[in-house]
Write a protein that binds this DNA or RNA. Structure first.
Lengths: 338, 338
DNA sequence: CTGAAAGCGCTAACAG
DNA sequence: CTGTTAGCGCTTTCAG
């Protein structure tokens, strides 16, 4: 009835060799005669044999499993990063565990119980979770591989974008269209001490404005929580103010979507009376005709996974920091100021 | 330098008992003196001891890991189902593995290599992946726990919604508003033989229409691929036809969003000249003011995980089929026909 | 209530 | 190139 599991011993005896040889043959290790290897492989296939991961983990000390730590998984950004990592893992036969760390406490728990993870996974990918110095040290104690996405540290490889450049690209575009009074729909950094995506994008915005001798009006920077709804509220606030901006730079496409809805509800024509630009190139941006600064989110996840796997298999590679490309995608929501 | 791992033996000797007792004490098994148990627990905490999952898996035969199989993970629906499952797993200390099976081939691979999973995970949650009878049998051969989300089978517990009721609820609402010429932005079922979400929702739509003696015009049923862009295209087609509908039932909110964009681009006022209703209650539905039929997606994932864990721990429970609640949420995109 | 001992299935020296 | 032999760290009878 129930399918029989074949062990390495079954394969060994069926192929007339020792278990050690089976192990070597099946893992592609050297020092196995070609004929032996092919025979073993054949028998293994026939018996539908697969090494028990737990047993091999226990014996070898590696689990062929990595974990990805995200603040949440049901958001466009994070689910895409995870998708990228998943694809790479699937490709090379690694398992991908999902860990959510919505707040500092949860993150700390992940780090401090890394002792557990140490046994359970070979490595960790932290996505946009700010690791304070103390926790970095803590992580370093284990022989876990670590890669960060978003934050760049000296200790571990990372994948990120240049967020100052993101802000600069976006606002340069607006400035070139003649906009000077620019609202920003942004967000608060959770742990400003570590890394601060919204802050850096705003720095970029300021820089772009500075190039035409214009300061960024801080009253025009409103928190949009990185959600559609938050962007909606923020834009509403901006547009109903005494001197509304002629353009809005939303720090994410989802906030930009909210801004577009707000503009429509308030009867503010886009791009006639208001230009809107976002960041991400969310799937929906195309349909909505949203001008945006594209970042290749899925690719970030894939790069991180690859870096981690590389680190795990290879020997003493230097800590590398990948900086993903960004790209201005002009669609219909931005136009020259009248 | 590197953190030392403590094994069960360390704990045993430090507590002055045998490893067997430590094992029992820490897992809450009976037949351990209260004093012994508390002493062991204390020592374990002090030594920061955790059982090596691989070792305990090997010895006990269970991995405290489950896998969730989704067609893709970077979509609102699936990432929310995963989020629900993840929360439950985190709560009880189970690990959650993500497996993507975008097509029949990939799905088949998951099933046929269930032999692998059999060793690696204790159970599987299949989300909206149609399992043909042959593969169901195949899965039954293993001693894996299986729960399906979306599809209901005789073999395994499931979580789903009544999709006929979904369609009926949506279209009833439209009919009550006086709409009779209703367009449907739907999708093709991948494997019509197994279960067919779009098909069932359309059956529900027909039933609602039938209650007022109206047939569903098949020419008004267009494929929207379950994406925003697909919904956009489909709605465009519908609205530029010779006799455009007065209302559109989109089988998902994301397709409804696309429809709203299409309407706006074509200058069709919503809800003035066109009513639109979706399904899901996507986060963005609220901001967009979209009328929809809500289903509790995250809850589905949680329920499935709970059912699976229950099945894994408990003994011989009957196969249960949960049917999630649905709810009409009326917002601004539907209105009585003029 | 507790301990001793036999594995779980595989990998990794170490010999041959 | 291949076989032998220790374990990896834990769970689980089976005795006491």
């Amino acid at each position: 009835m129930s399918v029989e599991r074949s062990t390495i011993e079954h394969v060994a005896s069926a192929a007339g060799v020792s278990v050690a040889t089976v192990s070597r043959a099946l893992r592609g290790l050297p020092n196995v005669a070609v004929s032996t290897r092919s025979r073993v492989e054949e028998v293994a296939k026939e018996l539908n044999y697969r090494a028990d991961p737990a047993a091999s983990r226990l014996a070898a000390g590696r689990s062929r499993t990595i974990a990805i730590v995200v603040p949440m998984i049901n958001s466009w950004y994070f689910s895409n990063v995870v998708a990228g990592a998943e694809a790479v893992c699937a490709e090379v036969g690694y398992d991908l565990l999902i860990l959510t760390a919505p707040d500092a406490e949860a993150r700390r728990k992940v780090v401090t119980t890394a002792a557990v993870l140490d046994r359970r996974v070979d490595g960790l990918i932290f996505v946009e979770v700010a690791l304070p110095p103390g926790e970095l040290v803590e992580l370093g104690r284990h022989r876990l591989g670590v890669v960060t996405v978003g934050q760049e540290t000296v200790a571990f490889p990372s994948v990120r974008v240049d967020n100052v450049a993101v802000g600069e690209t976006a606002v340069c575009h607006l400035v070139e269209l003649g906009h000077l009074r620019i609202g920003v729909v942004g967000a608060q950094a959770e742990e400003p001490a570590c890394f601060d995506v919204p802050g850096q994008r705003i720095v970029g915005a300021e820089r772009a404005l500075a190039s035409v001798g214009q300061p960024l009006d801080r009253d025009l920077v409103v928190n949009g929580e990185f959600t559609v709804d938050g962007g909606h509220q923020a834009a509403r606030q901006l547009l109903t103010g005494t001197r509304p901006p002629t353009a809005i730079f939303a720090l994410s496409d989802e906030m930009a979507f909210g801004a577009l809805v707000a503009a429509r509800q308030l009867g503010v024509d886009v791009p006639g009376r208001l230009s809107v630009i976002g960041v991400d190139d969310h799937d929906v941006a195309d349909v909505m005709g949203l001008t945006t600064v594209r970042q290749r989110v899925t690719e970030h996840g894939a790069l991180a996974a690859r870096a981690l796997l590389h680190h795990l298999s290879g020997e003493g590679h230097p800590v590398e920091h990948a900086v993903g490309s960004i790209e201005l995608v002009v669609r219909g929501t931005t136009r020259a100021v009248p």
